[in-house]
């Protein structure tokens, strides 16, 4: 494709609405995958290779555009500039979990036993996906925290928490559906931040941090569940006491 035509095509790009979260997932009629179109995909995947050296920057985007055979200028119309590059990282790393699921759990039999263990293992796998850009991640977090990018950043975080629970085989359909995903989002975000300062071999400290947070989260949701059960028990006990006193309820 000639650069000029690529340019007009790119200006027509409009980001697909990002609210695909928790829409019915069909196995027979799957929705077309990917939020990036072909030209974006070409530029972003080429630019991504420059991130370890140049960060999530306009410069990396220009280098990528050139590598992919586009004019430098065409990067101006990658709608959100460096944030698109960050998003590319988030999306590709999230989507990389599903195909690796089997391999991860056959290698690591311990992690495959319970849902919380699988959640921990998959979250760790996702954190390892930051390995190559970890030294650039604080800059990325700063860009993600800009008000215009906050909704999309949160959206990606929520998609990740949902993906991990789905791949871990979580089957909750009650309020714990929300508390589990919300809890993991917070834990993931803080672990990611911890990791940017982690100099331990193989990010061992980050994994220990992650496991501590997950253990705390588990005891918190147990406490919530316990209180709910206690309320239900007290209510039914109260009814029984009243009934035994001859109140007709």
């Amino acid at each position: 494709m000639a650069p000029s035509r690529a340019l007009t095509r790119l200006t027509l790009l409009r980001r697909a609405p990002s609210s695909a979260l928790r829409r019915y997932h069909s196995y027979d009629h799957p929705a077309p995958a990917g939020i990036f179109n072909a030209s974006e995909q070409a530029i972003l995947s080429a630019a991504y290779k420059h991130v370890p050296e140049h960060g999530f920057t306009q410069h990396a985007l220009s280098l990528g555009a050139r590598d992919a055979g586009y004019l430098d200028i065409s990067t101006n119309v990658v709608p959100e500039g460096p944030f698109s590059l960050i998003r590319y990282h988030l999306v590709t790393q999230r989507e990389a979990l599903a195909p690796r699921r089997e391999a991860i759990f056959s290698k690591d039999a311990n992690a495959a036993t319970t849902v919380p263990a699988r959640v921990e293992r998959l979250t760790w796998e996702r954190l390892l996906g930051n390995r190559d850009v970890n030294h650039r991640w604080q800059e990325a977090l700063a860009i993600m925290a800009q008000p215009s990018h906050v909704p999309a950043s949160f959206h990606e975080l929520a998609l990740l928490a949902d993906e991990i629970h789905f791949l871990a085989g979580d089957t909750s359909v009650d309020p714990s559906w929300y508390t589990k995903r919300g809890g993991l989002s917070v834990i993931y975000a803080s672990s990611e931040l911890f990791m940017t300062n982690d100099r331990s071999p193989g990010f061992g400290d980050t994994r220990a941090f992650l496991q501590r947070r997950l253990a705390e989260g588990g005891s918190l949701s147990n406490a919530v569940g316990g209180v709910t059960q206690w309320l239900g028990f007290t209510a039914s006990a109260g009814v029984n006491v009243l009934r035994s006193k001859g109140v007709r309820i």
Binding site: A20, R22, R23, Y24, S26, D28, H29, P30, A31, P32, V173
Partner: peptide
């Protein structure tokens, strides 16, 4: 062939299953 679901169809299906549950 099978046609991918549209956004509206997926919205309809998720709210249908949610309200049924």
């Amino acid at each position: 062939p099978r046609k991918p679901l549209t956004k509206e169809q997926r919205d309809f299906l998720s709210s249908a299953l949610r309200v049924n549950q």
